[in-house]
Design a protein around this nucleic acid. Structure first.
Length: 575
RNA sequence: CGGGGCGUGGCGCAGUCUGGUAGCGCGCCUGCCUUGGGAGCAGGAGGCCGGAGGUUCGAAUCCUCUCGCCCCGACCA
């Protein structure tokens, strides 16, 4: 590809509309342009990166035994009514009517369509397992699209669906996909972690999210620094905290705490550390009030609470509701003699002689003990883990870090196959619903995540396997015939070797070429300039580490060939 | 949907408070010059000031409505 003929409108300045680095760089590097909110056009080099990711995804999905299909983007409402999601899905589902007034929607995901396809065409255990996937544009009418490709309304996704005859088979398929995902993201050259994820209300199943680790990620994840335990915040647990010496319960005592409402204020006033206090909050689980107890320095994890209570939604009660239910203003609540259901975090259950509110303004209780002074309706892990916690598996140190969710695998079970009556006959002639799994990869988001993780002040630093081009040749002096002839020769030679190369043959000053090369992040830069004319030497520079060396053309070609071959070999396959 | 902000040549912005008919930097075109980190000089093209209505002798500027975009919250690949 010749730069002079390429549609690559690079920008010197950051566009005003972009906030996060991947969005800014995708625009500045001329990879994407916005059409309307959350909807982007991919320009040639942007598309090239998307294709690279897709290719790796396809190779690994195929290797894992999945088959590619392409499902419709426009889907009939009736199918969605059958699964119950026409009502459940909400405004994120873009609905419309065609000329015959038939209701339709743009596919935000394809469980319904795939399940329909399979129920119509697969009837026997002999045809199982079956694993189908597609790479397709999805549309979700997001409440707030933002961050460019990170959260568009229209985005490219690989979604796969598996159908198994029994649990063991479904679990094996899940494991295959887990392994395939590991290979996919490591082949993309990304630092990532598979984390255990919450499965929501479907229950009984399991799920992993694949997170590209980046400081700017939207999701917080917990990873163990010693073993491979990793989970998102909604799911993460910690090794149980017990005090080594169990204290003898002391007499319950009421103390005045005038105007001290927050944990810090009360602790300062009473001269105690915050882990000696238990805070009480009133939550509404689908409008049913519950009191929730966690240690003073801990926070409630709403999803854990939600799952414990089997609620669709949990929210904090407002001040009026708190006063009505406890008889005290917020800041002075406590479990003792509280007349609503009580959820106690496991950590609190192991504490003794702690401080709580007294359910009376300006009063707290000291030496509160569970069992003696109150009893909980539920006792469970409902808090967020912290960096002080220990790994639940190995006791190692936990770290909180940020990530971008680029993949999600999910064991679905039979929820869709039952809803849509998708069944097969086993070897006894008995009918069963398929056991399903679904497996998503945000392809366009992966591109954004790769940039979010790999960039510097000058621009993008693409991992070679997903770079739009592998090599860029800078012809610094297009008007010089000797230099140009060599640049052209190298260009053809690299292409002959099957290497993807961009030749900057523009009549621009060297500075612009260096800046653009850095911006668009092509891994290997080959410069033909004065030094070639004087000494017959080329400059080779790697974008990632800025390492520069000089070599004769023949040596340069050899070095480049090696670098590329090495970068394209998956780590697992290296000798 | 709630809260905040912004719409002015392709991009980034000033001008709006205090009305007088649009300006700067970058980019683009032509020429000269320059060629190892976004040069310099000269000339030039390009703007329904997001849209509609109103006030006024006169509106980018004031008023009303409207559309779009960005940021913060609940959602997700």
């Amino acid at each position: 590809m010749r730069f002079s003929q390429l549609l690559l409108p690079t920008l010197k300045e950051d566009p005003a509309e972009a906030e996060v680095v991947s969005h800014k760089l995708l625009l500045r590097a001329g990879f994407i342009r916005k059409l309307t909110a959350g909807v982007y056009s991919y320009l040639p080099l942007g598309l090239a990166v998307v294709r690279k990711v897709e290719r790796i995804v396809r190779e690994e999905m195929n290797r894992a035994g999945a088959q590619e299909v392409l499902l419709p983007m426009v889907q009939p409402a009736d199918l969605w009514r059958e699964s119950g999601r026409w009502e459940k899905y909400g405004p994120e589902l873009l609905r419309f009517k065609d000329r015959h007034q038939r209701e339709s929607c743009l596919g935000p995901t394809h469980e319904e369509v795939i399940t329909d396809l399979v129920r119509m065409n697969v009837h026997s255990y002999r045809d199982l397992p079956l694993n189908l996937y597609q790479v397709q544009t999805k549309f979700r009418d997001e409440i707030r699209p933002r961050f460019g490709l990170m959260r568009g309304r229209e985005f490219i996704m690989k979604d796969g669906y598996s159908f198994d005859a029994d649990e063991a088979g479904a679990d094996a398929t899940y494991q295959k996909m887990y392994d395939a995902y590991q290979r996919i993201f490591s082949r993309c050259g990304l630092a990532f972690r598979a984390v255990e994820a919450d499965t929501g209300t479907i229950g009984g199943s399991f799920s992993h999210e694949f997170m590209v680790l980046a400081a700017t990620g939207e999701d917080q994840v917990v990873i163990c620094q010693h073993c491979d335990y990793a989970a998102n915040m909604e799911k993460a647990t910690a090794r149980e905290i017990r005090s080594e010496t169990r204290e003898q319960p002391l007499p319950l005592n009421r103390v005045p705490t005038p105007g001290r409402k927050t944990v810090t204020e009360v602790c300062d006033f009473l001269q105690i550390p915050s882990d000696r206090l238990v805070k009480t909050m009133i939550w509404l689980a689908d409008d049913r009030p519950v009191a929730v107890l966690v240690r003073g320095d801990h926070e409630v994890q709403p999803v854990k609470l939600q799952n414990l209570l089997g609620a669709l939604e949990v929210t904090l009660a407002d001040d009026d509701r708190i006063a009505e239910l406890s008889g005290a203003p917020a800041g002075f609540l406590g479990p003792v003699e509280l007349k609503i259901p009580l959820v106690m975090d496991t950590v609190v259950a192991n504490m003794s002689n702690f401080v709580t509110g007294a359910n009376q303004a300006d009063q707290h209780l000291v030496n509160v003990n569970p069992g003696r002074d109150f009893s909980a309706t539920h006792q469970a892990d409902i808090r967020m883990v912290t960096e002080e916690d220990q790994c639940p598996r190995c006791g190692g140190k936990l770290a909180l870090t940020r990530g971008i969710e680029v993949g999600h695998i999910f064991k679905l079970g039979t929820s869709y196959s039952r809803a849509l009556n998708a069944t097969f006959l086993d070897d006894q002639g008995q009918s069963h619903p398929f056991i399903m799994g679904c497996y998503g990869i945000g392809v366009s988001r992966t591109v954004a995540a790769a940039i979010e993780q790999n960039h510097d002040r000058d621009g993008i630093i693409f991992p070679l396997p997903i770079a739009p081009m592998q090599v860029i040749i800078l012809n610094l002096t297009p008007k010089d015939q000797e230099i140009s002839a060599e640049a052209e020769r190298l260009y053809r030679e690299l292409q002959t070797q099957g290497i993807e190369v961009l030749l900057d043959d523009r009549d621009e000053r060297p500075g612009s070429k260096f800046k653009d090369a850095d911006l668009i992040g092509i891994p290997i830069r080959l410069v033909v300039g004065k030094r070639f004319k004087n000494d017959g030497l080329l400059e080779i520079r790697t974008r990632a580490d800025g390492q520069t060396s000089e070599a004769t053309p023949a040596a340069a070609l050899a070095v480049i060939g090696e670098m590329i071959a090495k970068a394209l070999t998956p780590v697992d396959d290296r000798p």
